[in-house]
């Protein structure tokens, strides 16, 4: 089909229209607000990571977005269609793929039977290509599948009709590292093709590798939405080093240094700290000492996000 290769991704929807629009979404169960006044906009072709601890409301948001549950107040729309209105929702779902957390299929069916059913309803132009990539054992009954195989079948089912938007809830949980990496690569390729993807996760290292933007949800409220790289820049580097001897108190006391630890180790002193300042200043500081060892690492996103959902959970 024309326009479907990596060099010329098909235009998924008019660039002016957001692929996913959530406006003041609230979902209450009695007194409990699972989601509270959530407003979020995901652009066409974006890969958006939706982060938060268990119970934060990520799955509720996703299920409302897909029309499995209805909001208490607020709206959710996909590709310009209001997902609370059935006729509009059905139009949107033709172009949407969904992978729930813990996908479940009829245990007595084979993978092939399930995919045949899905194909007969929503289409399956990419089915063979995805089966080559993810290889669930389609001839066997699903009750014999391992978690990884169920997830693979779920991925095939979610993408087989070449949707414009794919929503995934914890897509890598239960996958071995090899499969996780294959999934990440797949997401990057999909991004090249212009597919919009929303996925919730608490595997932060994956989010950092594939997402454009990240939203953090905590107790039903959206705490922040940021570009992944901005977050990483803000979080700085972790520095570990060793110098000979016993430097003075004010060693490495520069702008941008925080969380300093130091300890003696034989004839050397070790330091570890977070650094968000100018790297040149740090290099200048090294000249004063006999540097024996130096490790520089990106701060893990965990540390950054703990500031968003760490404090009152302790």
């Amino acid at each position: 089909m024309a326009g479907r290769d990596n060099l010329h991704p098909r235009v998924r929807c008019p660039p002016s229209m957001a692929a996913i629009e959530i406006d003041r979404l609230t979902k209450r169960y009695g007194d409990l607000a699972a989601v509270s006044d959530l407003t979020l906009s995901i652009e066409s072709g974006e890969v958006f990571g939706y982060l938060g601890p268990n119970g934060a409301g990520k799955t509720t948001t996703i299920r409302i977005l897909l029309g499995l549950q209805s909001p208490t107040t607020g709206t959710a729309s996909v590709l310009g269609h209001d997902m609370t209105v059935e006729s509009q929702r059905l139009d949107a779902l033709e172009r949407v793929g969904y992978l729930p957390s813990n996908p479940r299929f009829d245990e007595q069916s084979t993978g092939r039977e399930v995919l045949d059913l899905h194909e007969s309803i929503k289409g399956g132009e990419r089915r063979d290509e995805l089966l080559d990539l993810f290889t669930p054992p389609v001839e066997r009954e699903i009750r014999e599948y391992s978690t990884g195989n169920v997830q693979k079948l779920g991925l095939v089912q979610a993408f087989m009709h070449d949707p414009d938007v794919v929503v995934m809830d914890e897509p890598t949980s239960g996958l071995d590292p090899l499969l996780q990496e294959r999934f990440n690569e797949f997401v990057r390729d999909e991004r090249e093709r212009g597919t919009t993807m929303l996925f919730s996760s608490h595997v932060l290292s994956e989010v950092r590798r594939v997402c454009d933007r990240v939203g953090v949800l905590r107790e039903g409220e959206l705490v922040t939405v940021e570009d992944v790289h901005d977050l990483l820049d803000r979080s700085g580097k972790h520095i570990r080093l060793r110098v000979a001897g016993d430097p003075p108190e004010n060693a490495f006391d520069l702008d941008g240094v925080s969380d300093v630890s130091r300890w003696r180790d034989g004839g050397e002193t070790a330091f570890s700290f977070t650094f968000t300042g100018d790297v040149n200043d740090l290099v200048a500081e090294f000249e004063a000492y006999d540097l024996r060892e130096l490790d520089v690492e990106e701060a893990p996103l965990e540390d950054v996000f703990l500031t968003f959902y760490g404090e009152s959970d302790a």
Binding site: R63, L66, L93, E94, P100, F105, I121, K122, G154
Partner: peptide, 11 residues
């Protein structure tokens, strides 16, 4: 929870 995947179909 099989219904989740079923209802994500355009039916």
């Amino acid at each position: 929870e099989r219904m989740d995947i079923l209802l994500a179909l355009p039916v």
